[in-house]
């Protein structure tokens, strides 16, 4: 018993090349720009000019460091909805507002039905859904469904906004259901992988790993021990010590 359609033959999605992403945030902002006047309600922002500015975004780029005592590699890491085949965000939705398109596998929110309960965001392991702070409906990557089939846009531009704008071409769009598609081949060649496979969501989007043998950082210090004994706490502390506020 599930509300997911039978797996579609066409599985549209993104392939993100971590070997090339420089973390420029172009895809993040262009996505916001396209989508704020596009599908569904605007991607609104609260406190745009004061403290705690807070808006809805469909795509965010993190940065991580991978390291051992000799090597270190900074990896910029874009993340948007992965249009999972077994999308828990769809089955958990009580209203049917969240759905996966039978035709191409795109996971969408029907904002007219959404009650803003937030459950789908809770069920998504990737943090791909954000509640709009003003419109109070759930927002997520639409795979630019209003671009990729749009007759008002020149054919070569019928790709997601983030793909079209990415200066390094680190983002690829295509049919991952077709083993002969460009994206499927890339995935095969480069060892494209799933995020959090153990969550069994079967994401359609794939990530291509950083390729280079990582940079030697020799004669710096033994990072591993230091990082461990130091155990940095992460950003939340930096970003305002939430816990302290709680007392």
């Amino acid at each position: 018993m599930t509300s997911l359609p039978d797996p579609s033959a066409i599985k549209l999605g993104l392939v993100i090349d971590l070997d090339i992403c420089v973390g420029c945030q172009a895809c993040v902002v262009n996505c916001k720009e396209w989508n704020t006047s596009g599908y569904g309600a605007p991607l609104s922002d609260e406190n745009p000019y004061s403290s705690n500015p807070n808006g809805a975004w469909l795509n965010r780029v993190h940065a991580y460091e991978e390291f051992n005592s000799e090597k270190v590699k900074t990896v910029h890491f874009p993340k948007s909805c992965l249009h999972c085949e077994d999308a828990p965000c769809v089955t958990v939705c009580p209203t049917g507002a969240s759905y996966k398109r039978a035709e191409d596998g795109i996971v969408l929110v029907n904002e007219d039905w959404c009650i803003g309960c937030g459950l789908c965001a809770w069920s998504c392991p990737y943090g791909a859904r954000e509640m709009d702070p003003v419109e109070n409906v759930m927002k997520k990557c639409t795979l630019c469904v209003d671009r990729i089939y749009n007759d008002n846009i020149p054919e070569e531009d019928r790709v997601p906004a983030c793909v079209r704008t990415c200066p390094t071409s680190a983002r690829h769009f295509g049919d991952l259901g077709d083993p002969n598609s460009k994206v499927s081949k890339l995935v095969a060649e480069r060892g494209g992988y799933d995020l959090l496979p153990e969550q069994q969501t079967k994401p359609v989007n794939k990530y291509l790993p950083p390729q280079s043998s990582c940079e030697s950082n020799e004669d710096q210090f033994s990072l591993l021990e230091m990082a461990e004994s130091n155990s940095p706490k992460g950003f939340w502390e930096w970003m305002d010590n939430t816990l302290e506020r709680l007392g």
Partner: peptide, 8 residues
Amino acid sequence: FGKVRSLM
């Protein structure tokens, strides 16, 4: 090849 930590 090692640990992963969040940078930014």
